[in-house]
Write a protein that binds this DNA or RNA. Structure first.
Lengths: 130, 130, 130, 130
DNA sequence: GTGGTCTAGACCACA
DNA sequence: GTGGTCTAGACCACC
């Protein structure tokens, strides 16, 4: 039942990324209860301390709220969730353009490269590939 | 004369990234001599061991060659350099699309997001920005 | 408790060679934990940085995997280990034949020389010799 | 006209190895004059200091003799040359068997491995392959 | 506890 | 001069 993590990133960040992705995709809705620390730790095959750190980080970002004795819940402040999604999107685009320009590519080449990729390969894409 | 490094990435990687960018952009040409370990260490304000590590990593990647007692040189195997550039480009695009799709965006939204960014903000972008 | 190293080869390579030999001989099995950096440094009488370099090199070769905060483990990808063993074997044979032929020996002389050696001297050979 | 050297070994050793191989193969005979330092340096595309070091090393081994003002000559003491050849051969075999046994191979497997190699691949072998 | 990075300073072989 | 290795000692993030 334990999952695989890549070595390059802290595990607690990788777990947070997955949860955040499910939240911004609306698979987890505002007010939904997240699994308990122990349960998620078991599912993920990691130390409960690591999950605890994930939840702390997400609470710091305002994405979840913990209610003592009840658990951890997706925040119901929807504007926060939307803001996070917009910010993440902008960060991703910004980093992408910076990286491509650092390679010496022009704006036109960047767009072309993306289009080629989406036409050839993007159709089969899913999040379960290795 | 010392430069600034961001805390999130190892310094020796950041130095390598800068050099690699200059190489793939053809600011440094095949056969060119790189600064000596000690010289680049002084320029960058880091310990010579750190630069040494940068050069080791780049040699492992096949980007540079070291000649005993003479120095470190950009490899003259041009196909390797091209291969590296292509691979880096593909990796960047791949990560970009994955990240955007993880946010729940469609292919059309990804392209739109990029186009908006390049129109609004990309024009001022240049290699001298921080 | 400190061990001896020969001057001709880097210490971090010699330590790696020993570990790799134990792994391909199945004295260390896939999934086994290697000693911590500090522990092996103490055992070997070298600086922890040197052992660190050994482990980095072995990870680069795909022989071991490091799990953050947990330690360094023999990879469980058994095919990689077998591939490394085969490659090492081929490299050794290749170098041997090249060296012998460079001396002007024929294929028959090479085989004879090896047979003579194994009959006369090879019998006493064992893994505990210095 | 300059030749290629591998990075792993000192150039002055690689040059010595080539000369010694030609001597033990009797392509260079006792009493033959070797090229002058400057000439060999030009041919090999290296610094004359490097060739000088090659000749010093070979003189130390008793393989060549330098006569002031005349040049460097293959020693006419044939027993020395034979002794060197025998010693080199033994060293090569010894290292080969040690390396193979370190991989956990038995004597039978070592002989089999060598035979397979010589049958399949050894026929096309020559010293000019990359 | 673990591995990863960095500095300071030293020594070495090589060209 | 060059790169390569090693030690000593420190700090860090992660689990």
């Amino acid at each position: 039942m334990s999952e695989e993590f890549q070595a390059s990133k802290p595990i607690y960040i990788q777990i947070a990324d997955r949860l955040i992705n499910r939240i911004v995709r609306r698979e987890l809705l505002p007010g939904d209860k997240l699994p308990s620390v122990r349960e998620l730790a078991l599912q993920s095959g990691v130390n409960p301390n690591t999950v605890q750190r994930t939840y702390s980080e997400m609470e710091r970002m305002g994405i979840v709220e913990t209610r003592r004795g009840q658990g951890t819940f997706v925040t119901e402040k929807d504007d926060i969730l939307m803001g996070i999604k917009v910010r993440m999107k902008n960060d991703i685009i910004d980093a992408f353009v910076k990286n491509m320009m650092d390679l010496g590519l022009t704006k036109g080449e960047i767009i072309d490269g993306l289009n080629n990729f989406l036409v050839e390969d993007g159709g089969e894409r899913n999040e379960n590939r290795p």
